[in-house]
């Protein structure tokens, strides 16, 4: 199963903004229970969308710059980037089918 790679304040531009394919960013923190519970769902999606959508995760504790830039005040939050812009946003834990719909809407 594909495993979303870590991104950071330092590498966000290269990993996400400059990426040609859509990128889903999973904002999480170690102390956030639902974030850990969302991880297996995101991993399943990353396998299903392999090659069409890139999946990365960002630890908001270690990377407050990007979290603050995108106004993250609730986690888990998933942002879908397309062409360097935010094209979709999912706040809180949502059913897998909802996540699929948001991703499909961007593709």
């Amino acid at each position: 199963m594909a495993h979303p790679a870590d991104t950071s304040d330092a590498t966000f531009d290269a990993d996400v903004i400059q990426n040609d394919t859509p990128v889903l960013v999973d904002f999480w923190a170690p102390w956030c229970g639902p974030c850990r519970m969302v991880a297996p769902i995101v991993e399943e999606l990353s396998t299903e969308y392999d090659g069409r959508v890139k999946f990365v995760k960002l630890n908001t504790d270690e990377n407050p710059g990007i979290a603050s830039k995108y106004g993250i005040r609730s986690i888990p939050t998933l942002l879908v980037f397309k062409g360097g812009e935010v094209a979709g946003q999912i706040v809180g834990f949502r059913p897998k089918s909802d996540l699929q719909k948001r991703i499909e809407a961007v593709l």
Binding site: W31, G33, G71, R73, S74, I75, T77, V91, G92
Partner: peptide, 12 residues
């Protein structure tokens, strides 16, 4: 929601 309204204090 996600901009200050939350149903999970342990998360946010």
């Amino acid at each position: 929601v996600g901009k200050g309204v939350s149903y999970c204090a342990t998360c946010d």
